[in-house]
Design a protein around this nucleic acid. Structure first.
Lengths: 125, 125
DNA sequence: TTGTTATTGCAACCTTGTTGCTTTAATTAA
DNA sequence: TTAATTAAAGCAACAAGGTTGCAATAACAA
């Protein structure tokens, strides 16, 4: 059994992430769930889901935290290396399921990498 | 003539960035320059230097803003696409002067990309 | 040297996120 | 089914990073 109890709040958040590569910012989730749960609860559930390997988080260029569903991560470690895309016009942010090549750097032991691509999505071009 | 007047404060900050690929976080600059200028001044000078294409900024995984010198950027647009590295042990963060390949994404007009690599630097392995 | 304009300092503020503690809800044991 | 246990939620207060408005000062041009 995992650490995360399946409460009403957890279910509500999990439903949002289901079947989509769309990412949600912490702020947008707090706003969206304002009537259903406290912001502390939102952050704590996101933390727990990330610890369990169910979602992952990343930062955008403004320093905001975004969350999206994991495709193939295990509890405790996130192994699904993929880039994220953020549209500068509409702000929509999502996972891109393409392989990326991380350069080897002499004298550096690389453990992780995060690639954020920005531009215009198909809706906004 | 550029927008940025060469004041004592601007000179102090520019000296830090000279001849190094080392990046500085906003927070660390405020701390370091605490006796010489106000934090508002630090942020405003960083903004102006970035507008002029003299430095560039990026975010780390905690959402902190880092600043480093540009190699080949022009006023108003940053064109020097390169990854950044942050050591998880000592926190040192720097520009990596290697070419990176940005994947083409169908239906997306990619305008920028930011790759942050993390791991251990040579001092910390 | 004076007038003009950019820059600085300061205080107050905003946003995002966290912490401590009490209350409530979910699970387990009886 | 109920009681005991433990995780989760709510709330208020706080913290860090960064921004804003405005008055005071410094830089530059005439």
């Amino acid at each position: 059994m995992g650490i995360v109890r399946k409460t009403r709040s957890v279910d509500t958040i999990l439903e949002l992430f289901e079947d989509t590569d769309h990412a949600f910012s912490g702020v947008s989730l707090i706003e969206r769930l304002r009537d259903q749960m406290n912001k502390t609860t939102v952050y704590r559930i996101l933390d727990r889901l990330e610890d369990e390997g169910i979602i992952h988080s990343f930062q955008d260029q403004k320093g905001l935290t975004w969350y999206a569903k994991c495709q193939s991560c295990a509890s405790g470690q996130h192994t699904d290396l993929h880039p994220h895309f953020q549209c500068r016009s509409c702000g929509r942010t999502s996972c891109l399921h393409v392989k990326i090549t991380i350069p080897l750097i002499r004298n550096h032991q690389i453990e992780g990498a995060e690639l954020l691509m920005t531009g215009l999505c198909d809706q906004c071009t």
